[in-house]
């Protein structure tokens, strides 16, 4: 990874948090005098801290000073932890539960759980079809017995089947 790209990746999370805090602060000012008191206070504090974090994440002299002030010792932190991890793998890991919930929204939990578990075990885990089937059957049965039979809870049926 090039030094410039690494620097940019370091700055990305604090910049995103700074954008969030400024957005939050602006939104807080839209409320009445009393209702905005605490959110405005928190918004300002968060914005200042995030700005400091942006500075701390830049590998400059000022950044070193801010890092030292908040760490209590002279530090030379390299890349922010995790930026070295492949982004694609993280995206895939997030997409699995997202896809699961999207399908659940339409079809409900009980039909989707076996499909999700089976596909996850076989495609993501590269396990055998037999292991996938066993894991899918076990998880679905456990969910049904625990929530539906033992506890009598309602299990979401999805937009398609909830009538």
């Amino acid at each position: 990874m090039s030094a410039t790209r690494s620097k940019a990746l370091n700055l990305l999370p604090p910049m995103a948090m700074l954008a969030f805090s400024i957005g939050f602060l602006g939104w807080a000012y839209t409320y009445g005098e009393r209702a905005q008191q605490m959110p405005v206070l928190v918004g300002w504090i968060m914005s200042v801290l995030c700005a400091l974090d942006v500075v701390a994440s830049s590998r400059t002299r000022a950044g070193n000073l801010v890092r030292a002030l908040f760490a209590g010792t002279r530090v030379d932190r390299g890349a922010v932890k995790g930026t070295g991890k492949p982004i694609a793998r993280s995206v895939v890991s997030i997409l699995w539960p997202t896809a699961f919930i999207s399908l659940v929204a339409v079809f409900g939990f009980l039909p989707v759980i076996p499909v999700y578990v089976f596909l996850f075990v076989v495609l993501q885990g590269r396990k055998s079809v037999r292991q996938g089937l066993a894991a899918a059957t076990f998880t679905t049965a456990l969910t049904f017995v625990l929530f539906k039979l033992a506890l009598g809870y309602e299990v979401y049926q999805g937009l398609l089947f909830s009538g």
């Binding site: 699995w96 539960p97 699961f100 919930i101 659940v104 939990f109 759980i113 999700y116 578990v117 996850f120 075990v121 993501q124 885990g125 590269r126 396990k127 292991q131 894991a135 076990f138 998880t139 456990l142 969910t143 625990l146 929530f147 506890l151 809870y153 309602e154 299990v155 979401y156």
Partner: peptide, 18 residues
């Protein structure tokens, strides 16, 4: 983890809905 993860995610989310 590929056996553990889908089971925990399913049970956690069914529980949250319940």
């Amino acid at each position: 983890v590929h056996i553990l993860v889908p089971a925990v995610v399913s049970i956690a989310l069914v529980g949250v809905f319940a």
